[in-house]
Design a protein around this nucleic acid. Structure first.
Length: 485
RNA sequence: GGCCCCAUCGUCUAACGGCUAGGACACCAGGUUUUCAUCCUGGCAAUAGGGGUUCGAUUCCCCUUGGGGUCACCA
């Protein structure tokens, strides 16, 4: 066996990928990179019934988004269904039949189900081998082929979980080849991992109970087992079950579509159940290649807390250069952004140019948590929002004021702004003078002007915002507010 | 029910058997002369319970409790 590090991501194409699956892929990719080995994508499509159209393309797209590019299996995906056609699994199955380690299962699914229900009624785990037929028929296609196990004690080492001790009671005769001729996962992955010289099998916790069965099959097949690494599940927000699609887990591409950065997702996934022992909170992909280790992966499941993801993305966005941020939020040719990109539609009307949009973006960069928030944050920069009386009637200070008084202040402000060149500095000066003139507190006067000029519940700094909006818009909006009072 | 795994603030987590159990998210308060946000400062908040071993236990052992996984012709 080669000592080369080779890891694989082996999803079944049954739907979209969520953070749990994506994290497993990331860990496998990291182990391959840091071992200077290969990362292989293998599509486990042996269940014809559960196969979902487009799922394979989706998986590749997800890997591409995070730049976890497979060294093998990308251009010509390795599909188990095709290996079935090539007779790969049959060849190994024949070996087992010859050596007496596989036999035909003569029972119908209903009969097996009865055994299972009996075991359940007796409050005992179901073991098929308790019903192992004495003289099984000659195996032929159309019958399930079962592994003839040789139950025994095992101590199985797992890179994450440590040594797992099990007794013979967990080793059973499982199905190798189904009646439809396709191999089960339990059989196919072992054959494939061996033929593809996979060194580390990194997968979710749901497989840990099967490890003794796999050990038994490895022995029967005379295959040296790979290194096992069992990664605990990511739990849902309530923490009571593993994160699942059924349970509302989001498609990983939804995060891309909502405007999360790939580097955010990488750092988030890596630190969900792993840390390097220091107080470092975020990691670049290069730091992860350098520092990641399976041994430091948490043994218990971590809950998925989207708030941390949101915070992390905001932090990454703030660090972006303006031009890079602009590229991210603008329309590109990708299949997921159309028309105005993340901008409000109005941002692409002819009167707004790139320079204007960049000025706007610069003002909202520090408050942007994900790109999909952009229309809400910037709408008023591109179109006049209708006067919203509630902004004043619910304002904790302004609601105490008489409308005629507010009108008076707005008239004064307008008069001052008429003479402004609308540079940020001049506007700041004028706003401060207005404060002295009226003797009002900033919270009152500035809130009033902010509401009049934006009609939004919050905005960037007032003089900055006004400078970007320009004189014409500000004056006309103040007029609109005055007549609405 | 059998088997396996797990157990530190609300959440993610740190702590060769040895400081007042540390950090981050979230939340709360104050500051950065408008709001929101950013940034800064401070605050709240945890070793599931019980036995051992030890001078000393978050750490090692046992029991209990709790949580998760698994017991498919799904992966």
């Amino acid at each position: 066996m080669s000592s080369n590090v080779r890891t694989r991501f082996a999803p079944s194409p049954t739907g979209f990928l969520h953070v749990g699956g994506m994290r497993t892929a990331l860990f496998a990719w990291l182990v391959a990179r840091q071992g200077k080995g290969q990362f292989i994508l293998r599509i486990e499509d042996t269940d014809q019934k559960r196969k979902v159209e487009g799922a394979e393309e989706h998986i590749i797209k997800c890997l591409g988004w995070l730049d976890l590019v497979p060294d093998e299996g990308l251009k010509n995906p390795i599909r188990q269904s095709e290996r079935v056609k090539d007779g790969v699994y049959q060849k190994w199955a024949d070996k087992l039949i010859e050596s007496g380690r596989a036999y035909a299962d003569p029972y119908s699914p209903d009969e097996v189900q009865k055994f299972r229900e009996q075991a359940q009624a007796d409050k005992k785990p179901f073991l098929y081998r308790n019903h192992r037929p004495e003289n099984p028929p000659q195996w032929k296609p159309g019958l399930p082929l079962r592994f003839k196990s040789e139950p025994k004690d095992y101590v199985t080492h797992d890179e994450v979980m440590g040594d797992i001790k099990t007794g013979p009671e967990v080793v059973d005769d499982f199905i190798l080849i189904k009646a439809d001729g396709f191999p089960t996962y339990n059989f196919a992955h072992i054959v494939d991992d061996s033929e593809m010289e996979i060194s580390h099998v990194i997968r979710g916790q749901e497989f840990i109970a099967s490890l003794p069965n796999y050990r038994n099959l490895y022995e029967a097949l005379d295959i040296e087992p790979p290194i096992f690494a069992t990664v605990p599940h990511i739990m849902n927000e309530q923490g009571n079950k593993k994160l699942s699609k059924r349970d509302g887990a989001k498609d990983i591409l939804d995060y891309r579509n909502e405007g999360y950065l790939p580097e955010t997702m990488i750092s988030f996934l890596a630190t969900l159940g792993w840390n390097d022992g220091t107080e470092q909170e975020t990691f670049t992909i290069d730091e992860l290649i350098d520092k990641f280790s399976l041994a430091r992966v948490q043994k218990s499941g971590a809950r998925f807390d989207e708030r941390r993801l949101i915070w992390l993305n905001g932090a990454h966005i703030r660090q972006l250069k303006l031009d890079d941020l602009y590229t991210y939020v603008s329309p590109h040719n990708d299949d997921f952004i159309h028309g105005a990109g993340y901008w409000p539609e109005a941002a692409y009307k002819s009167k707004y140019d790139q320079a204007y949009r960049k000025k706007v973006l610069n003002l909202v960069q520090e408050r942007l948590k994900f790109f999909a928030e952009l229309p809400e944050l910037t709408g008023f920069f591109f179109e006049d929002l209708p006067v919203n009386p509630e902004l004043i009637s619910t304002h904790k200070q302004l609601k105490k004021y008489d409308k005629s008084e507010l009108k008076k202040y707005l008239e004064k402000a307008k008069a001052s702004f008429e003479g402004s060149d609308f540079s940020e500095a001049d506007l700041t000066d004028r706003l401060n003078s207005l404060l002295e003139e009226t003797g009002e507190k900033p919270i009152v006067l500035f809130s009033l002007i902010r509401i009049a000029t934006t009609q939004a519940s919050s905005s960037p700094g007032l003089s900055q915002t006004m400078a970007v909006l320009g004189k014409e818009k500000c004056i006309s909006r103040i007029n609109a507010q005055i007549s609405a009072l």
